[in-house]
């Protein structure tokens, strides 16, 4: 047999498309659509793992909320609602700008693609900025789990905490200390991992925006924009669930 080493570029395309190869076509794919479909499926499978990743957190949350409902209500009420709500608006807004960026890429509008990506980066950064402010408040209020945790610390320092625990609460003070700490542990793990996903997302957005600016994408090849979009929307969905679960327990 002949053992000549065949370069992919010279090999005939499997699907018999005779048009010239797109510069972005990788050697092991036959067509652009095969490449795009592989990429998008890969992204979806990745999101599948992400769903299970956060699923483990949500079941943990559910269990402790069942067990320590009063503590969860108390702790949730201690969180300011307004920054959370603003962040919800900001993040859903960033999902819109992301979707519009993908749409611009699909319709070959390079400038608009870049602009919408930058808008998404800005909104994502605003979200993180507000998150930093919220975390700072938690530190100030001693609501960060660990050695310095004191659920009543803030209330007592401001002179309003003497009759705590509030009416209708059957748990003792120690019990509240212990169980609200679980709420805040979950609060930090959940929002922290969410924020980490956003930071990663913003880094990717920068890269994609740069590539878009360089004219790497067109209506035929824009899978990276599309996949970044899927990731960003997923991060948005996680927040859509986190917001009511963390900020809105028994507000009435």
């Amino acid at each position: 047999m002949s053992n000549g080493y065949a370069h992919a570029e010279g090999a005939p395309s499997m699907h018999g498309h005779d048009h010239a190869h797109h510069p972005a076509l990788q050697h092991h794919f036959s067509t652009m659509s095969q490449q795009r479909e592989a990429g998008v499926l890969g992204m979806w499978v990745f999101l599948l793992t992400e769903v299970l990743f956060f699923g483990g957190l949500f079941i943990t949350y559910t269990l402790y909320r069942m067990w320590y409902y009063e503590a969860f209500a108390l702790a949730s009420k201690s969180i300011e609602i307004v920054p959370g709500l603003i962040n919800t608006v900001v993040l859903i807004g960033s999902s819109l700008t992301m979707a519009l960026s993908v749409r611009s890429a699909q319709t070959n509008q390079r400038k608009a693609t870049v602009n919408w990506l930058i808008a998404t980066i800005i909104l994502g950064s605003v979200f993180l900025g507000i998150k930093v402010y919220e975390y700072a408040l938690k530190f100030e209020h001693h609501h960060v789990p660990g050695a310095t945790f004191d659920f009543f610390g803030h209330a007592e320092a401001s002179g309003e905490g003497h009759e705590a625990p509030a009416e209708g609460v059957t748990m003792g003070r120690d019990q509240i200390q212990r169980t609200t700490q679980i709420f805040f542990s979950l609060y930090f793990v959940m929002t922290g991992l969410h924020a980490l996903h956003m930071i990663v997302g913003i880094v990717i957005l920068f890269i994609i925006a740069w590539m878009a600016h360089k004219g790497r994408f067109d209506s035929e090849y824009h899978a990276p924009v599309e996949m970044t979009g899927l990731y960003w929307h997923f991060v948005d969905i996680v927040w859509i669930f986190l917001f009511p679960l963390l900020y809105l327990v028994e507000r009435h």
Binding site: A99, G229, H233, D236, I237, I240
Partner: peptide, 10 residues
């Protein structure tokens, strides 16, 4: 909300 995002944005 999640369904809307999944169906239309994604």
């Amino acid at each position: 909300k999640a369904t809307l995002v999944i169906l239309f944005f994604m």
